[in-house]
Design a protein around this nucleic acid. Structure first.
Lengths: 187, 187
DNA sequence: GATATTTGATTTACAGGTAAAACACTTGTT
DNA sequence: AACAAGTGTTTTACCTGTAAATCAAATATC
C-alpha cells in the first residue's frame, strides 16, 4: 500500500468517516489533489482501490482459514496440489503459488510434519522431490473449500450480479495486460 | 493469495501459458471446476483477480520506490504526512496507513534516524507524540510522487480510458461495501 | 483525593518471508 | 572419462510485521 495507492484507509476511523465522495480512497485522492493540483491522480483511483480491496478481502477471508489452522499461504499450496490433481515438485509449487522456493521449502516442512502432504524422491533425477496430498490433506482442502467460497460469496453480496460480472471481466482484462507485461519484462 | 483466490499465477511460467481462457486466474478456476463441478466458483473470478492484480502491481511499483531507498510502507507513512498537510500522532499514522502501532513505531524510528521525519511531544498530554515531515522528507515525497504516478499510469496504459473509468467506479462500489461491512463488524 | 480504568505508545518474543550462498545432483563439452 | 556449467532444493542470515505484554500518563469512579 503506497501513498499513491490510497495509503490505506484514508481518513482513518478516527476523524469522522469518508466524506461525500464515497470510499476512503476517494478521500485520500482528494487530499493529494489539494496538495498537488497539477498531478494526474487518475491511477490512484484504480490501483489504490485494488490494493485496498485486496487488503480488506484478505483480512476478511482469513477467518475460515484460521479456523482450520492454516495460513493463507499454506492453503494456497495445498490448493495447488488439489486442483492440479497430481504431484508437484517444490519448484512447480513455488511457481504455482507465486512464492519463493525457500518459502515453499519451509511450508512443506511444516505441512509434512502435520501429515497433510507427503514427499517422495524422483528415481531418475535425485535432486527433485515429488509432493502429494495425503488423504488427510485432501480431506482438509475439500472440507474448507465450500466454506471459503460461501464466505467469499457473502463478502461480495453487496454488489449485484451484473456488476460482479462486469467487474470480473474488467479485472480479467487488466490482469491479462499485467501478466503479459510482466512476462515481457522477464523475457 | 488463497487457493480460492486464484492461487497466484495458476499454471506457472513453466507449462506453456494461460490457455484459451485469458488470464491465469481463469486457468485456475477451470482446474477447480474440473475437480469440484458442484461448487460455485464465481467469487474466485473477482477476488482471485483482485489479489493477483494487487500482487503484480505492487511488484511493479516497487521499482521507483526502491530506487529512492524506501519501502512501500515507509513511503505510505511519509505520504500520509504529506497529503494531510499537518502533524500526525503515531496512532493516527497507524490508522492512516492501516498498519499496527508497533509497525509504525519501528518505521518512525528508522525514518527519524534518516532525518525524514521529526517528533515532538504534546505539551498537554505527555503520552502522545506529534510527527511531522522534515524538509528533506517533504522533498523526497514530492520528488518521488510524480515518478510514481507516471509509473502507475504506464502500468495501466494497456486498458483504455473509458474502461479505466468503469473499473474505478466498480471498484469504488465494492470498496464502499467492504468498508461498510468491516465497520459494521467492528461496531 | 486515592484508586481503578482507559488510552497512547513502545518493547518483547516470535512467526514468516526473502536473497544469496551452499549443496547435491545432472548434463554438456572436450 | 573428467570437468565445467547448469538445475532443483535447501540452508543461512537477516529483515519486517504482528500479538501480547509493558510502561506511562490521563481520565473516571468512588
Amino acid at each position: 500500500m503506497t501513498a499513491t495507492d490510497g495509503g490505506a484507509n484514508g481518513r482513518g476511523a478516527g476523524d469522522g468517516g469518508t466524506g461525500p465522495g464515497g470510499d476512503t480512497v476517494a478521500a485520500v485522492v482528494r487530499q493529494w489533489r489539494a496538495v498537488h493540483p497539477d498531478l494526474d491522480t487518475g491511477p490512484m483511483e484504480i490501483i489504490g482501490r485494488i490494493n485496498r480491496c485486496a487488503a480488506l478481502l484478505q483480512q476478511a477471508e482469513d477467518a475460515p482459514l484460521r479456523r482450520a489452522g492454516l495460513s493463507r499461504a499454506e492453503f494456497d499450496l495445498l490448493g495447488a496440489l488439489r486442483r492440479t490433481g497430481h504431484e508437484l515438485t517444490p519448484g512447480e509449487l513455488a511457481r504455482e503459488t507465486f512464492s519463493s522456493g525457500a518459502a515453499v521449502t519451509k511450508r512443506l516442512k511444516q505441512l509434512t510434519e502435520r501429515g497433510l502432504v507427503e514427499r517422495r524422491g524422483d528415481t531418475r533425477d535425485r535432486r527433485v522431490a515429488h509432493v502429494r496430498l495425503t488423504e488427510a490433506g485432501r480431506a482438509l482442502v475439500d472440507g474448507i473449500l465450500p466454506e471459503q467460497l460461501a464466505y467469499e460469496s457473502a463478502v461480495l453480496s453487496g454488489v449485484d450480479g451484473p456488476r460482479q460480472d462486469e467487474l470480473a471481466a474488467l479485472l480479467s482484462g487488466l490482469l491479462g495486460q499485467l501478466e503479459g507485461r510482466l512476462d515481457a519484462l522477464r523475457a
